[in-house]
Computed example of a mutant assay.
Amino acid sequence: MQAEEVLVELGGVATRAELLTRSTEGALRRAVAAGTIIRQSRGRYALPSTARIGQRAELTELAEAGRRAAHEVSGTAILLSATARWGWPSKWLPTKPQVALPRNRKVAPGVRRRLDVRMRDLSSSDREDGWVTSRVRTALDCASLLPPDEAVAVLDSALREGAVDRDELLFAAAGLAPLYRGKVEGLIRFADPQAANPFESVLRWIVSDIPDLDVRPQVRITDDAGLIGIVDLADVQLRIVMEADSFEWHGQKEALERDCIRYNRLVAEGWLVLRFSWDQVMNHPERIRELVRRTVLRATCGYDVHLRTG
């Protein structure tokens, strides 16, 4: 089977080992060379969908805007301008370049209107290329200063890239001020390099505080006929699957057919399947949390929740 076809059946993201169970090393190499499969990080591959290609181009553009802004004001690109430089997808993209300037610097009103300026002192060890925070510094800053769901999306991306690891981040976090240390260490431990994208990362964070629920990203599920697929999130104990659905995967007839077969096989195996759109995840987390809470209650109690809560 072609490596691209295997990757589609695996949900668009898979490890090298998973691909080679049904395709060949040569087919994988040819697909990567042709650009029909992209290598996300060591041993991890994805389909180069139009959305991902557009995302990479957008990150490159944002990184360049951050570089120009940092040089203009003799500052340092930070936070989401820095994540763009390192190629880490995030929940939201900055509307203005984010830069840090020394605390004693005077900033003209026009500069503040054009740039998101943060007053902070950075050491030379915190910077790379003379204009941007290092990967470790960027990850810690985002974990410290962004809302938790946005921070998790960045940390998942950072770990997925593979240039930093969890132990390295935890070691650096130990040197933070007590005001931030506990929050940052908790987020680093929660982060997971298996998360496929910020869409999935944010969904995982939304449901993370629901009692009795323990979801893991990119879970492989099989039945008697073989592999059903690798789902976005799953609680294996409760047999609950959560899918972060985007139109790019389900906008064609063939994709819809595959999706229906996959869904029906999951249900036939006793899985409760919940599907959420991008708008629901990004803009209505409270609705998702309540729906998942009720689903967990039903799974743990074994009868209709409405009989208990109605």
Rank of each mutant, 00 (worst) to 15 (best):
E257H: 13
D129M: 15
D156I: 00
I188Q: 02
Y263W: 09
L146R: 00
G229H: 03
A234F: 08
L159A: 04
S246R: 09
D304C: 08
D116V: 13
P285A: 04
T76A: 02
Q237C: 15
Q252W: 15
I230D: 09
E9L: 11
V32D: 03
G226I: 11
G66H: 01
L159E: 01
L145C: 06
I188S: 04
W271D: 04
R293W: 10
R181C: 13
Q98T: 14
T95A: 13
R166D: 03
S201V: 01
L256R: 09
A70S: 02
Y263P: 14
L291K: 04
G12D: 08
I53E: 08
D212E: 09
E72N: 03
L213A: 02
G162I: 05
R68D: 04
R68M: 06
A84F: 01
C142W: 00
Q98R: 07
A158V: 05
L145V: 07
V236P: 15
S201F: 00
A191S: 05
N264I: 07
L122G: 13
P148Y: 00
D156V: 00
D192G: 00
I210Q: 01
L272F: 09
E243H: 10
E257R: 10
V305A: 06
V13W: 06
R258D: 07
I78C: 05
L297R: 06
P285C: 03
A108Y: 09
P285D: 00
R293T: 13
R265N: 08
D304T: 10
G87P: 05
L272S: 10
L307F: 14
G162S: 03
Y303H: 07
R293K: 10
V219T: 05
T50C: 14
R52N: 05
V296W: 02
R67Q: 04
A195I: 02
L307D: 11
W88H: 04
E4C: 15
A255Q: 09
R265Y: 08
G54K: 05
G110A: 10
E254D: 13
R42K: 08
L170D: 09
G12I: 12
E257S: 14
E257G: 13
V267F: 06
R189A: 13
E269R: 02
P94F: 02
Q55M: 12
T15Q: 03
R275F: 05
V117K: 01
R113F: 12
R85S: 04
W278I: 12
C301L: 12
H250V: 15
Q194S: 10
L155Q: 01
R67P: 07
E61G: 14
P217H: 02
I221W: 02
D126M: 12
L266W: 03
W131F: 13
S123N: 12
L297K: 09
R137Y: 15
L256W: 06
T95G: 15
V305K: 02
S125F: 15
A33R: 06
D156A: 00
A51K: 10
L291M: 09
V73I: 02
N283Y: 05
M119P: 13
L140E: 06
A151K: 00
A234D: 11
G270S: 05
L274V: 11
I288V: 11
E254V: 14
L19W: 01
H71Q: 04
A172E: 01
R29Y: 04
V292E: 02
A108K: 09
R262C: 12
